[in-house]
């Protein structure tokens, strides 16, 4: 019923607008088109100034409302993110100046040079000096932005430092599977044709490769604070993306083409809870590449902790190989608790 009312109100509003529009056309014929033109011109010129002022206030008000909800109010949780934040502020400053300057000019000119019978438009087809000026000045600013940008870019994308922790993250519809290389610090070889989730091998690890025997599979990513970590990123079915908003990073997960990204986490989850004042704070991995109907629910959890906490967490983890082989010996005890469980996922 309320739907019907909304439709009726809409239809009525339409009718009113239409009648006004029609009437105004008749009025303009009666009043003389010149007079109507002058009046409309004045109104619209005035509205442009109103728009400018209201717009500037709106920009401020919007910032008041939402600045606190962005990541600007949280320190970056990774060292790379700090560079990215710095770059963001540099870019904001440069573009901000241009934004306010040009928008104010645009609407001010629109108001100031509105039609007047007294003024003649100034015949001014070109001026090389001005044109060179606004080619060169933006070029200089952009050189600065490109310079800073690439400096940071190469810093962020260079090889991960020796001794970084390695974690493999594999995306599949619609969750993330996590694997740690174990004591040998080498991830065991994989062959996608061996994938068999019901047999404890959701990742398609090749058990023939001995370096796979100590690999640990888990449902969450655990990282040590202030220790560089390198993610090796895979996908099984379609393209996903490891989105790390708090670390200011992301990297696609592409079937058949492993990608990597590295960074150093700066704050433990517990510290971030204090910093943000949010007791429910959690580092989330969001899938940032459209991957199907469950895309929006493809969540992963990262826990950043101290070395001791990490060691304690790792202590009771059994390598996946061991779990699988035990399961084969005693089929009754197929405890698949250690198999990578869909992380969070839809949890519906």
């Amino acid at each position: 019923m309320s739907g019907f009312f909304i439709l009726a109100i809409l239809a009525l509003a339409f009718l009113v607008v239409f009648q006004i529009a029609k009437a105004s056309e008749y009025v303009s014929v009666l009043k003389g088109e010149e007079k109507t033109f002058l009046q409309n011109n004045k109104i619209n010129a005035f509205l442009f100034i109103v728009f400018l002022v209201a717009g500037l206030v709106g920009v401020w008000y919007c910032n008041e409302l939402y600045y606190g909800k962005t990541l600007f109010v949280q320190p970056s949780a990774s060292d790379h993110g700090e560079k990215i934040d710095k770059m963001m502020w540099i870019t904001l400053a440069v573009t901000g100046v241009v934004f306010f300057m040009t928008q104010i000019m645009l609407f001010w000119f629109a108001y100031k040079y509105q039609y007047s019978e007294k003024r003649k438009a100034y015949y001014y087809p070109h001026n090389n000096k001005w044109e060179v000026l606004w080619t060169v000045v933006p070029a200089i600013f952009l050189t600065v932005l490109v310079g800073f940008g690439l400096y940071y870019w190469f810093g962020i994308t260079k090889e991960a430092p020796q001794g970084s922790q390695v974690v493999e993250i594999t995306g599949k519809q619609f969750n993330w599977l996590v694997r740690y290389p174990g004591k040998d610090a080498v991830l065991g070889r994989k062959n996608y044709r061996l994938t068999n989730a019901s047999d404890g091998n959701a990742l398609g690890v090749d058990w023939e490769d001995a370096s796979s025997h100590d690999d640990i599979e888990a449902s969450e990513v655990h990282l040590v604070v202030n220790k560089p970590v390198k993610f090796v990123i895979n996908a099984q079915d379609v393209i996903h993306d490891v989105g790390l908003p708090h670390f200011r990073l992301k990297m696609d997960a592409v079937p058949g083409i492993p990608t990597t990204i590295w960074f150093t986490p700066k704050y433990t989850t517990a510290e971030m809870k204090k910093i943000t004042g949010n007791k429910d704070f959690v580092y989330e991995i969001s899938c940032d590449q459209m991957c199907g109907s469950g895309h929006y629910s493809m969540k992963g959890i990262i826990v950043v902790e101290t070395q001791e906490e990490y060691n304690a967490w790792l202590a009771d983890k059994k390598p996946q190989y061991v779990t699988v082989m035990e399961g084969k010996k005693t089929p009754v005890a197929v405890a698949d608790s250690a198999t990578a469980k869909p992380i969070a996922a839809l949890s519906k």
């Binding site: 409309n40 619209n44 509105q114 039609y115 100034y122």
Partner: peptide, 8 residues
């Protein structure tokens, strides 16, 4: 639009 005679 600078120093034009703008018709809206």
């Amino acid at each position: 639009i600078w120093r034009g005679n703008l018709r809206f």
